[in-house]
């Protein structure tokens, strides 16, 4: 339920130079636990991707990066993440803008309505989506009754249903960081631009968009990184017709037991996530995406 990857609130400490204090031991249980239960397993996984039954080897990476099939799968994951992020941004931007501009109680209510779906289990939502996508489901019901199509059509296991579902599940992760940036904007800036004779498009491109860029970057990074790794939603909505890195990883461990393949795929995904986080923190710091 994290909204944006803003900096953690660590206040500056009054201490110039560190001195051991017995009270520091209170950090030990948590730190030791996280080192053993989190850092060690992740490092071991990275290590595993370089080993096979014979010893040190790059066979896993050779298999993944040398095979057009797996390259295609990595492409699928990236495509899925790109399209989901783009649609979420296109829809989420105006929605977040409206949310940030509404005053009083309504803002609280609407905020809660955007926030609430995040607290509902992804499995439950995806289940609802599969029901909607049925031939006798609500989407077909609406399309037919509104006269868009004559007869119900098959939606389950189509790319339409995949993107519909992905956007449905991940849209709040775009809106909330955008909202938290837009809420801080002074609307008079836009008025000032308009009063200086700038047209709406010019005002948007030159004033609004640059000022809201940190929100765009935060929301975009968040949606991209969770949708590139999404597993439940694509699995239920398209299944094996649209293989992603997550499907391959899960299969490698749960079905075909090719651990090196799974580990290599996991490390590649880890690298993608890490690159994304680094890129976004670089973007936020560089001019044009200035945070404050």
């Amino acid at each position: 339920m994290t909204l944006a990857r803003d900096d953690l609130a660590v206040p500056p400490t009054p201490v110039s130079r560190w001195q051991f204090d017995a009270k520091a031991l209170i950090a030990a249980p948590g730190l030791v636990f996280m080192a053993l239960a989190f850092a060690v397993p992740v490092l071991m996984l990275v290590g595993d991707s370089f080993v096979d039954s014979q010893g040190l080897s790059l066979a896993g990476y050779r298999k993944v990066l040398g095979d057009p099939y797996y390259i295609g799968i990595i492409g699928n994951s990236l495509q899925l993440a790109c399209i989901t992020t783009a649609v979420c941004l296109a829809v989420g931007y105006p929605a977040a803008w409206a949310l940030a501009r509404i005053k009083g109680v309504w803002q609280v209510v609407l905020f809660a309505l955007i926030f609430l779906p995040l607290t509902v289990s992804v499995v439950v939502k995806t289940f609802g989506l599969t029901i909607m996508m049925r031939r006798d489901g609500i989407i077909n019901f609406l399309l037919v009754n509104l006269g868009f199509i004559e007869r119900p059509m098959r939606l389950v296991f189509t790319e339409f249903s995949l993107y519909f579902g992905m956007v449905n599940v991940f849209l709040p992760f775009m809106i909330l960081p955008l909202y938290s940036v837009m809420r801080m904007l002074d609307p008079r800036l836009m008025d000032a631009s308009a009063s200086l004779g700038a047209g709406p498009l010019h005002t948007f491109l030159r004033v609004t968009l640059p000022l809201t860029m940190p929100g765009v970057i935060a929301g975009g990074t968040l949606v991209f990184s969770i949708s590139v790794a999404a597993y439940v939603t694509p699995g239920l909505l398209v299944g094996d017709r649209f293989m992603t890195m997550s499907q391959v990883m899960a299969k490698a461990y749960l079905n075909i037991r090719d651990f090196q393949l799974g580990a290599s795929m996991a490390v590649i995904m880890l690298v993608i996530s890490a690159a994304l986080i680094l890129a976004s923190s670089y973007l936020v710091r560089s001019p044009g995406g200035e945070k404050h």
């Binding site: 597993y231 990883m249 996991a266």
Partner: peptide
């Protein structure tokens, strides 16, 4: 600061990757 980032970082890793890491470990 680094310790705080470390303690909060599982959220930034893909869930499946974490899951695989736990399974292996």
């Amino acid at each position: 600061k680094a310790v705080a980032t470390f303690m909060a970082s599982p959220l930034m890793l893909p869930g499946l990757v974490l899951g695989i890491a736990f399974l292996q470990a």
